[in-house]
Design a protein around this nucleic acid. Structure first.
Length: 271
DNA sequence: ACGGATGTTCGCGC
DNA sequence: CGCGCGAACATCCG
């Protein structure tokens, strides 16, 4: 599920489902998702609370409930919030759920359990170390090319690895970093400190464009998914190594950087 | 059946 | 001390 655009989409869905509503009952089974936290607390703290608001910071979702109760949710690799109606079977790898008095149930599903759920005070959420450590959020703060250039200048890592560092830009993952570098025509293995001002500007613009594009596609995607049961790869180059470049038809190649696959066009993205 | 998968954290070596 | 790298986490899917 999760990279910034999809987490943003999840936040919008959750707002529609939950904002202003009262949680009749909260349920959770012990699982790794509650590491450092406690499913019992999830159940006790959220019952009878009104949902005041849901925010996103990078890939984190921050729920504020009445009485200064806060919920931190990170989707990890396979986490998702799903809505059903009471009585319908929940998703297969459900780890927790919020039941509304009107009959809807909001489930947290996560097969690999790399995601995380934890209760805090709502007023303390933005002060959590993992949230404070986040760099600017592209949708909230924008991507500042000068700031990007300055941060690239301080590291010898591959530019793709740097782009995926949440302290540099919050919310970019392997897909968005791959897509942004393709749009910006910058080779993913380029040493960060060698990136020029013009390239940093191109990367900043491409990052915003890729996120906007993915976010737009997310709505259509959900409709397609619901009607056909599958989703298409909506990305330009991600997971398309071996296929022709959408811009020049050169065969797309793949390298591993920071332990993740990086697809690029050897013609459009020169070293 | 094997390899890889949209994320984060930890430990190690330099 | 700070940086960078690789492994680990747990499961599913093609």
């Amino acid at each position: 599920m999760p990279e910034l655009p999809e987490v943003e989409f999840a936040a919008r869905s959750l707002r529609r489902w939950l904002e202003g509503r009262v949680i009749a009952r909260a349920e959770a089974e012990p699982s790794r998702v509650f590491r450092g936290s406690d499913p019992t607390r999830f159940e006790h703290e959220l019952a009878s609370r009104r949902v005041e608001g849901i925010e996103r910071r990078g890939k984190y979702l921050l729920f504020a409930f009445s009485g200064d109760v806060g919920l931190l949710s990170h989707l990890g690799m396979t986490g998702k919030w799903v809505r059903t109606t009471y009585g319908e079977p929940g998703p297969r790898h459900e780890r927790a759920r919020l039941k509304l008095c009107t009959g809807e149930v909001i489930h947290y599903d996560d097969s690999r359990m790399f995601g995380r759920i934890a209760i805090y005070r709502a007023s303390a959420l933005l002060s959590l170390p993992e949230i404070r450590a986040l760099g600017p959020d592209p949708l909230i703060d924008g991507v500042d090319p000068d700031e990007l250039l300055r941060r690239f200048g301080k590291t010898s890592r591959a530019v793709k690895v740097a782009l995926m560092d949440p302290a540099l830009i919050a919310g970019l993952g392997n897909i968005q970093a791959t897509e942004a570098l393709f749009r910006a025509r910058v080779h993913p293995a380029r040493v960060s400190s060698s990136i020029t001002a013009a390239e940093a500007l191109a990367i900043a613009k491409a990052t915003a464009a890729s996120i906007a594009h993915t976010l737009e596609a997310a709505g259509d995607e959900e409709i397609r998914y619901l009607s056909e049961g599958h989703a298409d790869n909506r990305f330009l180059v991600y997971a398309r190594a071996g296929s022709p470049c959408p811009r020049c038809q050169t065969t797309l190649e793949q390298v591993s950087l920071g332990g993740r696959s990086s697809v690029y066009c050897p013609h459009c993205q020169r070293r």
